[in-house]
Design a binder for these strands. Sequence first.
DNA 1: TTGAAAGCGCTAACAA
DNA 2: TTGTTAGCGCTTTCAA
Lengths: 340, 340
Amino acid sequence: MERERSAGTTPRRTTLADVAAAAGVSRALASIVMRGAEGAGQATRQRVLEVARELGYRPDSRARLLRSSRTRLLGVTFTVSEPFHGEIVESIYAAAEAAGFEVALSAVGERRPESRAVESLLDAGIEAALMISPSSASVELAAYAHRVPVVSLLSPVAAEGVDVVRSDDGAGVRAAVEHLVSLGHRDIAHVDGAAAVAASERRTAYEAAMREFGFGSSIRVVNGGAHEEDGIRAAGELLAGPPPDAIVAFNDRCALGVLEAVRRAGLKVPADLSVAGYDDSQLSRLSHVQLTTVSQEAPRLAEAAVACAAARLASEEPSGLVHQPLLVVRATTGPAPARV
Amino acid sequence: MERERSAGTTPRRTTLADVAAAAGVSRALASIVMRGAEGAGQATRQRVLEVARELGYRPDSRARLLRSSRTRLLGVTFTVSEPFHGEIVESIYAAAEAAGFEVALSAVGERRPESRAVESLLDAGIEAALMISPSSASVELAAYAHRVPVVSLLSPVAAEGVDVVRSDDGAGVRAAVEHLVSLGHRDIAHVDGAAAVAASERRTAYEAAMREFGFGSSIRVVNGGAHEEDGIRAAGELLAGPPPDAIVAFNDRCALGVLEAVRRAGLKVPADLSVAGYDDSQLSRLSHVQLTTVSQEAPRLAEAAVACAAARLASEEPSGLVHQPLLVVRATTGPAPARV
DNA sequence: TTGAAAGCGCTAACAA
DNA sequence: TTGTTAGCGCTTTCAA
């Protein structure tokens, strides 16, 4: 079965020149119309647009990208195996579109280092890079930032010229602890994120909050991590001794592991023990999970990141880089059990 | 703080012309060397490469894409909220690189229809499109296929000119059923995928396998879906009456829901009831899940898809489009309980 | 083996 | 308001 597009027969794609010719105007004018730029009369505009639609014209992004100084293209690096990154990516598309930007995606994975992901975006002509949880060293990030504005999402890296958009983890953790305290819990433990991004900030905030509420003496931090396995292991350690009243986990995936271990140990959640996560990921919203967690509000984070990039491109100072997280109370936290 | 890249100061990126000039050759020759094409002497090649490295030259993909007829760019559409898609994407990067292709990603999401995802790739100059679980109608797919070779991954769509790369779901489900039968199970139920892609094929295969093993009379299909919630709901229905020996779920996420409901009903897995999933997703591999499942082997699927696209581009007939899945036995299936 | 010339499809100065 | 003229950085004939 021969296809239309097979060797030789390829029906050339409609170009701007075709549209211009059919509408009886110059290419430049057609370009102005297609871009919605000013400099064309009402009548012409109508006609060109009409013709373009009839011919099924679509601008060639390669040519556009090559030629224009303002590509209005935003590069995004994300880790393909992180569900929360996916949520942010989706929101970035929406925010970018609203702000008149296109989006170029580049995945980071086990066999695809972040450096390659960024380089390929740079080669593609992005105007700014949004990096979700960047893992590159500060010097590398600074080098990228030397080329285009770089916005780090989620991770509070300190690199010259890199803007950090994130939610206030300290406030988020504090809110979780406060919520548990208000439910009567005292012996609140923390399963931390170990070497994960933002782990130390959350750990510190947990300790500060415990002291603030007068439970400095019951501070208990266990080495955890960012994934389910880590939560299970950490909770295992925690339950080897007398169980705490409640556990604040580094993130949702970790919290899921904690929940699993806690239930496996025969304890009821939240009757015997409350658990809180962090991220408000889709996982936490599942009907059988109903995890109390802290939302970073992906859509707003994405908006802030896009706005930040836009500001830098307009040589303005970005604002609203730190966003206040939101406690989402679901079913894994409840009143503390009556004390002995 | 002024940045180097701020207004006016932008240090022009090194171009091929710079490299050519520095190496004392023509742009054309430098291009040949950079592409690794033939037509340059050993010495020249060395020198040009050296100079390029010194100057930190990186080819501009926009220009390259615009000019060359063979862009060697593969477009990939995927759904950002589907973990399994992510696994495939990662494997596609590896397979594409091995085959000398670049990859352009375009996400499909709730607010970003597949049509937009594909169109943007087309505008970017892709040579072929790999669509993971495409949801577009046949006519649309056929229209895309009219422009570039289109490969559908996972979903067995029937559209003119679209190649389907997938694993043999029938064989996979049959293997799961056979496994359960060999463990002594008879009353094996199926929670199907409802309207999900490939659901009907798996359902049919389940029924066929049950008949094949002589348990046609205990065929039991419950309306499920592709996500955890669906599994919970379906298992709830199933457990309203006398529970089956084993359950084969549409996919892993559904199986996770089934597991949850089963355990909530006080049954032990696999002591009281065995559960099998489909996909061998990362979820299924988690230490506390250890789900018996059927692997579609993402890396091999990705390789096959890339090979298929490459074949089409070379005007050859693709082969190896249907891949044999692999049963992965973990901890959620075990011997049938002793019968009454 | 090398180089000169001609564009890919588009945008951006400028002039009319 | 419109059209003309130059390219963006690269690849691709074609001739030397």
